[in-house]
Nucleic acid binder design. Structure first.
Lengths: 236, 236
DNA sequence: CGGGCGCTTGAGTTAAATCAACACAAGTGG
DNA sequence: CCACTTGTGTTGATTTAACTCAAGCGCCCG
């Protein structure tokens, strides 16, 4: 049988989740449909209860950045000056719980929910900082390995032959998330497969053969000693 | 109480930063001293009242990402699971106002302040998303032009001959903020100068000769019309 | 005034992008 | 049911933007 690896706290709505859960109506969204667009007035923020969404921003000339993938427990739709600052689309069928925007602005209305929202916002800041390390510091193989690892850590299932991760997004989404091209992402997947670190059941289903080796790849330590690394400039 | 930290090494100041945390209303920090380190327990968040701080994270192997530069009005130090997730250092002498962490967690204690903190957190999310576009989508000249423009928009002074921007951070900081090397940043500054878009009074003082042209550089539209662009593939 | 650090510039290298086929599965319609 | 289209992913060849290594410059501080 399987066991979820992601027993982590979804601290976003830990204490209040039960209260929230009873209150408002669910909202359902079909795969590939949009929840909101950049520039839309923010009427609600949304707690994702089931499914996966994709947050994106695009430049005038069409270049696209995937800002984040939203999984159950995540909150999406925080406003900037009252407006949505990303597009949000469903990658799978999605069930959401809307929270009225006014709750954000009036802390006295529902203090516990307000604190939960602040907590969710801080978690998002933290997640974005990890994402910065990927985009700014890592090379392509490290980015892809880090991506697979983070998906496994948060959303993987333990199977007999290793952690199993389903990737609801396409290669192009992964590429735009990591600041790479689709071709480079594909080559990195292939390299990891040929190294025996992962196996692929179709493009969207990844089995992690060795989490340790994946973690090493994520830090660029995949080549144990092809040549001596001599780094006199590094501070002690 | 004035905090005098002579310069450099973290272990020496770990305890000091805990003392800082208990200090009353206004807090001063000398240039090049640390406010906190990644992994420190969060006792306070800080409103920057004067000066500029730098938020950084480092990978095991020393690669560094500058997450953000904190200017007056910004709030720094939001916790993730109770811990600081970046280092924070003063680039200039800094004056701060500490806010006890418990205010984050108890929304009822001071609802207005709590709402302001949530607002600051959402602003930071928004700013980070802009940063993602830079890191993930833009090439080196666009990154540097975008950086100078954003500094000018937020912190520039209007002078007779154009907007004047002081850059308290060094080229290496800018490089680590943009995911480039120092050399590439320097070359991009030089290219903008030779193009007449900016002028430099020393490395840290930039005069923006033409904000429009800078904005075009930031979007990669620096070449106005060398010849007609014929793009049949672009959607209408 | 001299020394050092931060910045700039140059030459050569490389990692990732680009351009271009090709493979494969899923869906569609004849 | 099978041919055909379409979308998505993989692989290969080539180009290029940015990195690396190395030297030189200039400003600031002692």
């Amino acid at each position: 049988m399987y066991v979820t690896l992601s027993g982590e706290h979804r601290s976003a709505f830990r204490s209040t989740s039960r209260d929230i859960a009873t209150a408002p109506p669910h909202l359902k969204l079909a795969a590939n449909s949009a929840l909101y667009f950049e520039g839309d007035e923010v009427s609600h923020v949304y707690i994702i209860e089931d499914g996966v969404v994709r947050l994106t921003r695009v430049l005038e000339d069409g270049r696209r950045q995937v800002i984040a993938f939203g999984y159950p427990g995540d909150i999406v739709g925080f406003p900037a000056r009252g407006l949505h600052n990303t597009d949000c689309d469903a990658l799978t069928p999605v069930r959401l719980r809307p929270i009225r925007r006014c709750v954000l602005e009036d802390g006295a209305q529902d203090p516990d929910l307000h604190a939960a929202l602040l907590d969710a916002a801080m978690d998002e800041i933290s997640a974005m900082q990890d994402h910065f390390m990927m985009l700014g510091c890592k090379n392509a193989p490290e980015k892809v390995a880090s991506f697979i690892k983070s998906m496994a850590d948060r959303h993987g299932m333990m199977a007999a032959d290793g952690a199993n991760v389903h990737l609801p997004m396409g290669r192009a989404d992964i590429a735009d998330f990591l600041g790479l091209t689709m071709e480079t992402v594909s080559r990195c997947f292939t390299a990891l497969r040929k190294d025996g670190v992962i196996r692929l059941n179709g493009a969207q289903s990844v089995v992690i053969v060795s989490m340790e080796r994946l973690a090493r790849h994520a830090l660029g330590q995949n080549t144990p000693a092809p040549r001596e690394r001599h780094c006199p400039t590094l501070a002690a």
